[in-house]
Nucleic acid binder design. Structure first.
Lengths: 100, 100
DNA sequence: CAAATATATCTATAATTCGCGATATATAAA
DNA sequence: TTTATATATCGCGAATTATAGATATATTTG
């Protein structure tokens, strides 16, 4: 972890919706329905479910999630036409270690 | 810690200078000279020293530090005409706990 | 009390980010 | 191969933040 990446993460954490998404993804099965094709939550939650829960536009959420992935906060996995997002606990721990 | 405060902290962490100040204040004696009147670092470092080290204007740094104090990241203590700033480890830990 | 010093606040402009609709791309389904 | 669905990217006006100079306030010093 370095200052540049840490502030990129800080930018993601400067918005309530983005921070909320990270909180939801701590326990995806508690906040999202199981996906129609992929029943488990091993790779997290698909973009559409996150978008619907936030109520923001598809393009806005897509940009949010892309940025959160770019700085390492999220891990994205594609299955067919869906992208699934989950927390990247390793980077999150590196960030909190850097801060403390 | 709640979502609102956490994102206020996130805003402070979204800028390299502000994040850098927090890093410096982990070991103030390593990054700043001892103050002319207050030799120890028990209450941290005065605004002027931080301002000089960053190279930003006095008003900008004052605003930064005020905001960092408002969200709880820093503790401000006045001694005479100087304000000293130190990290608020308690809030920082609450923030990292909230995130992880 | 007047002058000097440290910090805070106000105001304004520049830069960045927000959030959306439109559009493009990727993949699956018909 | 055409159509439908999921996601990504582009371009734009609106909102927010960055940063500084000017000014105000607080405190010490002479």
């Amino acid at each position: 972890m370095n200052l540049k990446i840490a502030t990129e993460i800080g930018k993601c954490l400067s918005n309530q919706i983005r921070f909320q998404i990270l909180e939801w993804l701590k326990e995806p099965e508690k906040h999202f329905p199981p996906h129609e094709t992929l029943k488990h939550f091993n790779d997290g939650v698909c973009v559409t479910y996150i978008q619907e829960k936030t109520g923001l536009s598809q393009s806005t959420i897509s940009t949010y999630l892309t940025n959160m992935e770019k700085c390492g906060l999220l891990i994205s996995t594609r299955h067919g036409k869906w992208s699934y997002l989950k927390r990247n606990e390793k980077i999150i721990n590196q960030f909190t270690d850097f801060l403390t």
